[in-house]
Design a protein around this nucleic acid. Structure first.
Lengths: 135, 135
DNA sequence: GCTTGACCCTGTAGTCACTACAGGGTCTAT
DNA sequence: ATAGACCCTGTAGTGACTACAGGGTCAAGC
């Protein structure tokens, strides 16, 4: 009863080594073992792993997911606490986006003044060396 | 003649340990030393470090900066090659932004359906567990 | 029954770009 | 002379994995 690590990996799309890693850091519980020591995963493990994978896709840190899963495990899921964590995360995603947009802006401005030809004057290099006010 | 590592750190705003790290990985050259073994940095080192710092701020990877600085060192800076590297980097910044925007979208959509009150039904947790088509 | 190959186990080291010690030496000011 | 701020080296830690090395196990085919 129960699937091996490799099969769980295939079913979820998670790397098999990553599953072992999640167990090591306490994000996935230790599953039961076969007589020969093979891990045996059940439906609950699969759901939990998918929870983790969806959370990671949304950019939640491992620690965030630990907190969320702890709430689930203790069955004290309160929408208040969850939405607080999610809003904090949303704010940091927002911050990352605007940082990257600033970078994109500076880069594309500099590239626009670049001929792209094989001439030795390069505005990209100059901008990095001289620090124009673009950055 | 020349400033110590700590002083270069202060002048550039770079962490002093980071300067040592950049030397170790071959991004900064080994400077000359005082009789007692202290590193002595000059103007050229400072310019190079600022180049690196501006590049990092723009999200260039260390390896990218190595490539760019190699072109500079060999005095074969051709705008063609530089702009090629910069365009590749710009594309990856662009990709990151749109990934994050997708995440932002999914998160804020889910949060909108969340009351934020202390009720046990939480759409954020449900979304992670059940995998709604939002993600 | 034996072999082959695909799986599983463990622990450890590598990735990236730093950061933070520990355990020593040096420099400057009082 | 001594205190405190600096400098040196090497190493270990971060986050989130990934990739071995060196073994054991399982299922299929012959």
């Amino acid at each position: 009863m129960g699937v091996t690590r490799g099969k769980l990996a295939k079913r979820t799309g998670c790397n098999a080594e990553t599953i072992r890693y999640y167990e090591k850091i306490g994000l996935m519980p230790e599953p039961s073992r076969s007589t020969t020591g093979y891990r045996q995963y059940n439906q609950e493990h699969e759901q939990r792993l998918q929870f983790i994978m969806r959370g990671r896709e949304l950019g939640f840190a491992i620690e965030d997911l630990k907190s969320l899963l702890e709430l689930v495990d203790r069955k004290v899921v309160s929408c208040g606490e969850v939405s607080r964590l999610a809003r904090i995360h949303l704010a940091s995603v927002h911050q990352k986006i605007s940082d990257l947009q600033r970078i994109e802006d500076a880069l594309s401005k500099t590239l626009r003044s670049c001929s792209g030809e094989n001439v030795p004057e390069c505005p990209v290099i100059d901008a990095l060396f001289l620090g124009t006010d673009k950055f």
